[in-house]
Every structure is written in structure tokens, then in C-alpha cells.
């Protein structure tokens, strides 16, 4: 273990030192190759121009190389692998996609992902908005927000344990140590095994993600609400609008852009949801989702890379519209700069 700590520290030093040495050294080398000081006027100008051509690439170079290896190449490779067999050696055409159309597990996963997409982004945005509006009106709002925000720092696995404890089931008539069943039993209901209830178990898993992500929606929306000009709201009050009208007709339309950002961000997260399903049910009792199914196929029986890649492509296709929208949005914002 001491060796491990030592090697971690060593890597930090090598990594950071290496970066510093690269940037400093490459920059120095460029200055020496095309000197701009101590040479004649035109030569200096020419060399400065050459420096200006090369230097940006020295700066973005390391990032570009890492991005290429870890993201750009894999995206292309995954697309290619989805046309290959399980070992990734021979071309099988569209066989994996044909399988994808027929496989009941995959169909179930897509269906469940659609449930998740329909419920989680909407619930988080709605709850986040409500909490943001309410906490703005009270003196202890900041403390309340920080507490609601807190689950965002908790890992999905940690959150799964927390909620598994809440959903814990004991036989009827026994002392329930899970909060949910204890409440149900207290009011005379039947305790249930929540995470294996067909169909509804999906919602019990979604609650975990909603619990984590509402804080995110709340913080972003709260800051957007503060951006609404005071005069607009005052004018509405003078015109006799009630709080609900102010909320739906003034506030919501004003922050529509931010709501869209929150919604899409959570949508992407939902498409990739993996940890919660793996730890709570591992896809049993009809709760499978795409990301967990893909993980399953990557390692099941030595792994089927072709099918795994196909599932990844399905997730990617769902993300593409958001990606295009983001790029357009960013182009509009940055404009010339």
C-alpha cells in the first residue's frame, strides 16, 4: 500500500512536471527556431508570423491527442465494431442490428429508458423549479437549498444503498426496518418488495435519480430566476396577477432557455443511467436499461463486442439531436469570438 501511495504521488509529479516541461520546452524551442529578437526587421516579422502559425497547435496539441485517443477514435471504432462479430474480427453486416430489433431484453431496455426519459427530466425540472421559487421567499432558503443540493455529491452507488435501505422489506407482521414499508405498515397497508414489483419498480429506481438531480435543476433555475428583472414582476403584481399566474405566465416563459438546458442535461444523464440499475436490481424484474445491458454484453460469456457496440450506438443516436442543438446554441452565443 505504501508503494501504491508512493506511485500515485510519483505520477502526479511526473504528470504535472511533464506537462510543464512540455509546454515550457516546446514554447522555448519555437522561440529558438524562429527567433524574433536580435534579427533584422523583416526576418523578425516573418518569424513572428511563423511562430503565430505553430504556437496554437503546441498549446492544443496534448489535449487534441488525448481527445483523439479517448473519444474521437473510439466513437468511430464503436461504429465499426457494431458491424463485426462478437470478437470483433469478421464483418457481419447488419446482423447485430437485426438482433437488436428482435431481442426482447433490448426491447425491454429501450422501453424502460423511454419511461426514465419521460419521468426523470420532467420531475427534476419541475421539483427544482418549485423549490427554487419557494426557497427564494424565506430567510433560511440558502440552508434549505444546500441540503437539497447535497445528494448531488453522493455517488449513484452510495445513493442506491441509501434507498435500498429505505425500500428494505421484511415479511408481513415483522418489524419493518425500511422506512417506506414501516410507514405503509403503520397506516395498515401491506409491506411490499418494492424493487421487484413488476413495472412499478422502475419508478422506485427513478426516485433515486430524481433525488440526486433535483438539486442540480434547482441551483441552475434559481440563478435564472434571479435574472428576471424586478420591474417585470412588479408590473405583473400591479396588474393584479396572482402568484400562480406570475409563476406560469411571467417566470416560466422568461427562463425557458434555462429550463431547456436543465432538461437536456438530465436527459443525457438518464440515457447513460447505469450504476443505479446495476446495484439495485442488475436488470432483473424487467428493470433493465440500455447502459446496463451494454455492460452485461461486454462481459457476458467472455463478452460480445459487436452487440455491446450496437447498444452503445443506440444510446449515441438518442444523444445526437441534443448534441446538434448544443453546437448550434454555442455557435450562436460565441459568434465571432
Amino acid at each position: 500500500m505504501a508503494a501504491q501511495i508512493f506511485s500515485a504521488i510519483f505520477v502526479i509529479i511526473i504528470g504535472v512536471g511533464g506537462c510543464v516541461a512540455y509546454f515550457w520546452g516546446a514554447n522555448k524551442l519555437l522561440d529558438l527556431t524562429f527567433p524574433s529578437r536580435g534579427v533584422s526587421g523583416t526576418a523578425a516579422i516573418n518569424n513572428l508570423r511563423r511562430q503565430g502559425l505553430v504556437r496554437p497547435w503546441l498549446f492544443v496539441g496534448p489535449a487534441l491527442i488525448i481527445l483523439t485517443i479517448y473519444l474521437i477514435y473510439p466513437v468511430i471504432a464503436t461504429l465499426w465494431l457494431s458491424f463485426l462479430d462478437r470478437g470483433g474480427t469478421s464483418f457481419v453486416g447488419l446482423a447485430n442490428y437485426e438482433w437488436a430489433l428482435r431481442d426482447p431484453d433490448l426491447r425491454r431496455s429501450i422501453l424502460n429508458n423511454l419511461f426514465w426519459l419521460a419521468v426523470v427530466p420532467a420531475a427534476c425540472t419541475f421539483l427544482g423549479l418549485i423549490i427554487a421559487v419557494l426557497t427564494d421567499k424565506i430567510w433560511w432558503g440558502t440552508i434549505a437549498k444546500s441540503l437539497i443540493f447535497l445528494p448531488l455529491a453522493i455517488s449513484f452507488v452510495g445513493a442506491s444503498v441509501i434507498w435500498k435501505f429505505i425500500y428494505e422489506y421484511r415479511g408481513e407482521g415483522q418489524v419493518q426496518i425500511g422506512l417506506l414499508n414501516a410507514i405503509i405498515q403503520h397506516f395498515g397497508g401491506q409491506p411490499q418488495v418494492w424493487i421487484s414489483l413488476p413495472f412499478w419498480n422502475n419508478f422506485f429506481l427513478m426516485i433515486i435519480l430524481i433525488w440526486i438531480q433535483t438539486g442540480f435543476a434547482m441551483v441552475i433555475l434559481s440563478s435564472a430566476l434571479r435574472g428576471i428583472p424586478e420591474e417585470t414582476l412588479e408590473a405583473a403584481v400591479i396588474d393584479g396577477a396572482n402568484p400562480f399566474q406570475i409563476f406560469w405566465k411571467i417566470m416560466v416563459p422568461q427562463i425557458w432557455g434555462t429550463i431547456a438546458v436543465v432538461w437536456t442535461t438530465i436527459t443525457i444523464l438518464v440515457l447513460k443511467v447505469f450504476d443505479i440499475v446495476l446495484t439495485m436490481t442488475n436488470g432483473q424484474w424487467n428493470s433493465q436499461v440500455l447502459a446496463n445491458l451494454m455492460f452485461d454484453w461486454m462481459f457476458r460469456g467472455g463478452g460480445d463486442f459487436g452487440r455491446g457496440a450496437t447498444i452503445a450506438i443506440i444510446i449515441m443516436i438518442a444523444v445526437i439531436p441534443i448534441m446538434v442543438w448544443n453546437i448550434r446554441q454555442a455557435n450562436k452565443e460565441t459568434g465571432g469570438h
Binding site: R55, L64, I72, A77, L81, G308, I311, N326, I327, N331
Partner: peptide, 27 residues
């Protein structure tokens, strides 16, 4: 810094922001 391809690079990075991790795992 001004250099050719800068706008494209920015667009690529914004695109990569949302690429699911799942796309990278197998390769």
C-alpha cells in the same frame, strides 16, 4: 489565439461533451 480550424475544434469539443461514455468503452 487565432488559427485556422479553431471554430471547428470548439464545435468538436462541444459535441464531445455529450458523447456517452459507453461509446468509448469497448474500443
Amino acid at each position: 489565439m487565432r488559427f485556422p480550424g479553431r471554430a471547428l475544434l470548439i464545435a468538436v469539443i462541444i459535441g464531445l461533451l455529450v458523447v456517452p461514455l459507453q461509446m468509448s468503452l469497448i474500443p
